[in-house]
Design a protein around this nucleic acid. Sequence first.
DNA 1: GTCTATACATCGATAGAC
DNA 2: GTCTATCGATGTATAGAC
Lengths: 195, 195
Amino acid sequence: MITQLKGDRRRNRHAAKTEAILAAAWELAREQGLAGISLRALAARVDLSQPSLYSYFASKNQLYDLMFAQGNRQLLERLEAIELPGDPHDALKKVSRELVTFFTEDWARYQIMNQRTVPGFEPSEESYDIARRVFDWLLAPLHLAGVAAEAHIDLFVALLAGLSEAQLANEPTGDRWTRHVELAIDMLLREVQRS
Amino acid sequence: MITQLKGDRRRNRHAAKTEAILAAAWELAREQGLAGISLRALAARVDLSQPSLYSYFASKNQLYDLMFAQGNRQLLERLEAIELPGDPHDALKKVSRELVTFFTEDWARYQIMNQRTVPGFEPSEESYDIARRVFDWLLAPLHLAGVAAEAHIDLFVALLAGLSEAQLANEPTGDRWTRHVELAIDMLLREVQRS
DNA sequence: GTCTATACATCGATAGAC
DNA sequence: GTCTATCGATGTATAGAC
C-alpha cells in the first residue's frame, strides 16, 4: 500500500517534470524553430544535464512525438470548448475561425502538426490517433453544414491550411489572410449547395 | 582576345560545376530533407573535398539562397512556357494547374520556396526579386479573369498553397488534393463574380 | 582551384559510476 | 535519476602545398 503510494508519487513527479521539459521545448521551438531545438539548451532550461533528458524520452524524435501529441490534444480541447451556434453555417464558421486562430498563434506547433519539416520525424501510431480524433470531431459540424463529399472536405482542409500557412509564412503577426476565413467558408458552402 | 576567351571558358566551367553542385544538393534535399543536407555528403557526390565547395558558395545559407533562386527561376520558366487559352477563366485554370503540378513534384523545392523551414535562412534581395517577378507574372492572368481585389488574390494564393501542401504532407505521390484545382478555381471565380 | 590537414564548437546519443 | 566523460558526426573556417 505504501509502496503503491510511493509509486504514484514517483509517477506524478516524473509526469510533472516531463510537462516542464515539454513547455521549455515549445519555448525553444518558438524562438529558434522546430529544428533549432538543441538538447543541451533544453536541458539547461530545466536544470538538468543533457543526458538526463533521456530519462524522459528515448530520442529527440520521441520528444517531437510528445509535442505532436500535445498539440493535437490542445486542439481537441479547444474545439470541444466551443459553444456552437444553432445555425450549421454559423457553427462551421466558428469552428473554422477557431482552427485558424489556433494554428496561427504558434508557428512551431503548426509546423509539427501539419508540415513534414523535421527530417526523420514520423508521429507514432498513438500520437497519430489523436490527430485522427481531431479530424473525426470536425466531421460532425461539416456534415451538419452539408459538407460531406470528400472533394468538399478536402477543399475545406486545403482552404484553412492555406490561409493559416500563408499568414504564418508571410506575416506571422498580422491578419491579412486569416481575416478571410468567413468569406472562404461562405464560398465553400455556396459551392456545396450548387452541387 | 585569347585571355578573354580563357576567362569565358573559366567562367563557364565554374558555372557548370556550380550547376552540378546544385543538382546534387537537390538530390540530397529530396532524400534527407532540406535541413538534412550535409556539406561533406554534398562534396562527396560531386567528387570534391568539403572545403572546395567554398570556391562555389561562401556559406551553407548561400547554397540555400542559390536553391531558392533556382526554384523561382524554374517556376518562371514553366509559367512563361504555358500556351494560354483565349478564355480568361480557362487560362487561369491552366496557370493554376501548372503551379500545383510544379509545387507538388518536388517537396524540397516547395519547402525552400514557400515555407520558413530552415532556421537561419533568409533569401537575399536578388533572389527575392525573382520570387517577386513570379508573383507579378501571375497578376496578369488573374486580372484578366477578374481576380483583382486583394482579398480574392489572397484567397487564390491560399487555395493553391493549401492544396499543394495538403498533397505533399499527406500523400506525396497521389492526387487526392491536387485534382480539385479546377473546382477550386471555378469556386473562386463564382465568388469574384458575385461581388 | 583543389587538395590534405587541422582546428573549433556544436550536435544527438551512449557508457558507466553513484 | 542524475551525473561526468566520451563518442562520432556535423558546420564552419583556415593554413599551406601543388
